[in-house]
């Protein structure tokens, strides 16, 4: 009797262990397949991108439709112009809101605004483009760099608000009290002590938001619109790297496909660099607090 119980127990145990091993293998395969896809994508980007890159890509304008050669100089400059405009819109609004919420706001008001920014973070990017279209392109009756920068800037707000609120709150209270004890008005404490102390984290938030909008295409489709030449003023259509990748990728021309891959490689390197740069701010802040 005892032996059969033990035997059946051992059998169950073995079955359970085999099942356990099998499931671990399945889970491992899940993780491995995600990594595999990542490497496949990066491989194609690097292989096709590198073979398509040349100096002309950075220095020349696009050639006429279907003609070989040319580059994306207009789009590279356009992306920088759009990002600068986006920073001008998104950073003051996001930073101001974040500092107010972290430093002054009543709990309930802060929670409400943060909830709204979370919801705003989930709004599809193309909706920002349409909003910018209705408030900027329609009244001005022209696609423009301005409207594109506006759309991207709006998209940056939620992330900047959230990170600045968090990092302002993390500043130790002693610093605030020390400032106030010296007789500084509160606003001097905020601008002279709190924001500088939190600046590492805030910068990281800004950079991550920037990296995110740098690759956005959808909000630019009917705001910045694209331009095959250099844009002469902010009220004219302007090109951007993601926009040009899209236009080239769906075109029927072999040479434009090649340039789309080159553009994709440049764009992804740019996005990754901004992300890595963002991490640097957090680390430099950590060093600073550790050295304290």
């Amino acid at each position: 009797m005892k032996e059969t119980v033990l035997k059946s127990f051992a059998a169950t145990r073995r079955r359970r262990e085999i099942w356990d091993k099998a499931m671990v293998t399945v889970l491992f395969l899940c993780a491995a397949s995600v990594l595999f896809i990542l490497f496949v994508i990066l491989w194609h980007l690097i292989a096709r991108g590198l073979s398509s890159l040349n100096p002309a890509f950075f220095t020349q304008l696009p050639k006429a439709v279907g003609e070989k050669g040319g580059g994306m100089a207009n789009a590279i400059i356009g992306t920088f112009v759009l990002l600068i405009l986006a920073v001008c819109v998104g950073v003051p609004l996001g930073l101001g809101a974040g500092v107010y919420l972290g430093e002054y706001a009543h709990h309930r008001f802060a929670q409400t605004v943060l909830f709204v920014t979370d919801v705003m973070n989930g709004i599809p990017s193309i909706v920002f483009g349409i909003f910018a279209y209705t408030i900027c392109v329609l009244p001005m009756k022209a696609f423009s760099a301005l409207s594109g920068g506006l759309a991207l800037g709006f998209m940056m707000i939620p992330m900047i608000t959230r990170t600045s609120e968090q990092f302002v709150k993390m500043v130790p209270n002693q610093l605030r009290e020390a400032g106030l004890a010296l007789g500084l008005p509160k606003w001097r404490v905020v601008t002279g002590i709190i924001v500088p102390s939190a600046i590492g984290g805030i910068m990281t938030g800004i950079m991550v938001a920037l990296a995110r909008v740098a690759g956005e295409t959808a909000p630019l489709l009917f705001t910045a619109f694209g331009n095959l030449h250099y844009s002469q003023s902010l009220t004219q259509p302007i090109s951007a790297i993601p926009l040009q990748i899209f236009n080239y990728a769906v075109s029927p021309y072999e040479d434009w496909h090649r340039q789309a891959w080159a553009g994709a490689l440049v764009l992804i390197v740019m996005v990754f660099l901004i992300n890595i740069w963002a991490q640097y701010f957090v680390y430099s802040r950590k060093r600073w607090s550790a050295g304290k």
């Binding site: 980007l45 996005v271 990754f272």
Partner: peptide
């Protein structure tokens, strides 16, 4: 993988 812009996924 999450940071790759969607237009690159499209390409």
């Amino acid at each position: 993988l999450a940071a790759i812009p969607s237009v690159i996924y499209g390409l």
